[in-house]
Every structure is written in structure tokens, then in C-alpha cells.
Design a protein around this nucleic acid. Structure first.
Lengths: 208, 208
DNA sequence: GTCTATACAGAGATAGAC
DNA sequence: GTCTATCTCTGTATAGAC
């Protein structure tokens, strides 16, 4: 709830539920558009139009574009955190890591916004200030770092590498340009692309 | 020479040399700023200021921002083509590929614009129309595809993969988010980052 | 809280003097 | 060809009626 100042209406009342629903719709639309067009190209009008309200109404929910997009990114981070938790059943850590990367790749093929903003995105500053986003991201990282240590201990991942480096490699896959390049050839099906990139990530290009 | 209409002045004359020099300075500044800020965030004023001329003067050289940036990208592509040719001495193909990727990674650490624009960059359309860029890119690709076939034949790269897929994997390294992620930890030196990413690319994360 | 209408700012592009 | 000054368009944000 990054709502502005107004009287928030009784918990669970009709108006409050409508309010919250609209806010969720805004966040959802924003996260989709962020993935499709990027922060700079996406306009506040786009988001308002997608939800079917006027731009001025959007500003009753969020103080500005930055905060709207930060909320959208926090939503994305929470979803990823939930997914990562859902993977934490009994299976071997290396399998969880594959599943995580596969998910990231599939999201990317669906034009979803990646968990991390790109290097010179204007999103970085507002994101640094968004605690919701930061805490969800930290939760994901902590859990995945645990998996990496496990996978190294059980001999499935290169031992001796700092777990942090492996984490970076895995996160980077969620914005790997290789997907787009393969897609633009028009010669590969969706799943084929995902598998190629997965294998490239974990096995490398080298012959063995 | 994407210059506009004016009398182009005698070949090699003082004015013509100044003109060309300024144009090169513009292209150079544009390519640097493209890498640092990206197409959307970079303004024509930035480029003009970097070169020390007024914005209106820039428009005597290039009809618009799109064409200026396309020329900058063509410059980048030609430089990469020259580099790739320079690698074509006697050494094994796999070494040439490593050297190519290493160079791409170093350029990225220097905030240079990558050879390929990112997925949803507004640069893509003007680039598709720029023949200089397209032909230089094609030259690079043709040569590197040859190296890949060689490296596969000599057992250094995974055989059975379409060379095109390997090419995508290699190109993708020039905009790999892993570099930025490693850099942002502050815990790794420049060369260490390059080596980590190189090894991740060719050897993968798997234990062996 | 939602709307229409509008203010304001930034950036691409142009006019016209020199 | 270079400059200063200006135009125009787009996009963020607000005002004010309902």
C-alpha cells in the first residue's frame, strides 16, 4: 500500500476492496508494460489506459511513475520469492537451481520484467529506495545462496567458486540477451531456446 | 559520410578535413554516450556538448538522432570487424573465440556500447535501416561462424550444436548482466570479473 | 476517487542571423 | 557551418469540477 493520504475506508469494506483491486491491477499492468517496453518507453498513460482509468486517477494511488514502477518490481520480487519457496521441497539443490533458471528464461520469453533492472535503467534509483523490493530480493538471494552451497557440497556445481559468483551467473540468465538472439533467428521453438540456454549456462560451450 | 546537402568542399581541403574530423568526433562521442546512458537517456545536447558545438550544428551533419546513433553503431561494428580480422592469425580457433569474448567483456566494463542493441531498444529500427551497420555486422558474423565450425571440428567446442546457436551465445556475452552484478558487489577486480565470466561461458557452472 | 482540462519540463528539431 | 533563440511534441504531474 503506497497509497496517498486519503481516509483508507473500513477494512474489507466494498470501497476498500475496490480500491485495493484497482491498485493490484495497476501494479500488474505496470509490471507487464515494464517488461514489454522498458521503464523509459513505458508511459503512465499506457498503464492507466491498460487498466481503464484516467491518468489523474492513477496519481491518487501512487505519487509518481517511480513509485508505481517500484511497487511493480516489488510485486515481481515477491512472486519470485514465492516461487523459490515452492521449489524448496525434497529434491536435490542442483535440480532446484535448474528449475529456477528455467522459470527465469520462460518469464523472459513472455516479455516479463526481469527481477533485476539493467545496468543503466532509470529504475535503479527508485528501486534502491523501495524496501518492499529490497527485502523480497534479499529473501530470494539468501535461499538461493543456500542451494548453491548445497549443490557445491554434493559435487554438482564447480566447488571453490564463491557462491556469490554463481548467484550472479544465475541471476544474469533472467536477462540473458541470448534468448532474444535465438528468438530473432526464427528457427527455434520456445522450449528449444530454453533448453539451449540452460545447457549453455550449466555445461558451457566446451566439448566434453 | 551522412552529411546533408552542402557543397562538400574539395577533397582533402582544410575545411573538408575539419568537417570530417568533427563528424568523427560526433560519432565517437555518441558511441560512448550510448554505452553509458543508453539510447533513450542520451540526448542530442549531450553529444553536442561533449564535442563542444551547438546542437543546431550537429544537425548539419546528421539529419536526426536516429541517424547519428546508427552511424555510431556502424562505427562500433566496423571496429569490431577490424578486431576480429586482426585475430585471424595462425592460432587455434578456440583461442580466437576466447579472445573475442574477452574483448567484448572488457568493452562492457568500459561502458562501451555493445555490438547488438538490447531487446526493446528504440535503436533497433534505425539500425535495421542502416546498411553500413548491417554489412559490418554480417562480416563479423561470417568470420566468427567459420571459427566456430573450426573449433567444433577440432574438438574444442561442443559438436552437434548449430554454429548459429554458439554465435548467439558468444554475442550475448557482450551484454551479459553478470558483469554488472559482479561489479556491483565491489568484491572483484576487473580482470577477475572478466575471467569468471569467460570460464562461465565456455566451461559452465557444473563441476567436472 | 474519478474525470476533463491544463500547467510544466525536457528533448528533438528548425529558423534565421552571421 | 556555426551560433542563439524558438518551435513543437510528448510525457509527467496537477487543478478543480463532480
Amino acid at each position: 500500500m503506497i497509497a496517498t493520504t486519503p481516509p483508507p475506508a473500513r477494512e474489507g469494506s466494498f470501497k476498500a476492496r475496490m480500491h485495493q483491486q484497482r491498485e493490484e491491477a495497476l501494479v500488474h499492468a505496470a509490471s507487464r508494460l515494464l517488461g514489454e517496453k522498458g521503464f523509459d518507453a513505458m508511459t503512465v498513460d499506457d498503464v492507466a489506459y491498460a487498466v481503464g482509468i484516467a491518468k489523474a486517477s492513477l496519481y491518487k494511488h501512487f505519487p509518481g511513475k517511480d513509485e508505481l514502477c517500484a511497487a511493480a518490481m516489488a510485486h515481481i520480487a515477491r512472486r519470485m520469492d514465492a516461487f523459490v519457496r515452492s521449489l524448496d521441497d525434497g529434491r536435490p539443490a542442483i535440480e532446484r537451481l535448474w528449475a529456477l533458471v528455467r522459470r527465469s528464461l520462460e518469464l523472459q520469453l513472455d516479455d516479463a520484467m526481469p527481477l533485476l533492472p539493467s545496468r543503466n535503467s532509470s529504475l535503479r534509483e527508485p528501486l534502491a529506495a523501495c524496501e518492499d523490493y529490497q527485502s523480497a530480493l534479499a529473501a530470494v538471494n539468501q535461499r538461493v545462496l543456500g542451494w548453491i552451497a548445497e549443490a557445491q557440497a554434493s559435487g554438482h556445481l564447480a566447488a571453490g567458486w564463491p557462491a556469490e559468483v554463481v548467484l550472479c551467473a544465475i541471476h544474469a540468465r533472467s536477462a540473458d540477451p541470448m534468448l532474444e538472439l535465438l528468438q530473432s533467428t526464427g528457427r527455434y521453438a520456445r522450449e528449444e531456446i530454453v533448453e539451449r540456454v540452460l545447457v549453455t549456462c550449466f555445461d558451457g560451450l566446451k566439448a566434453r
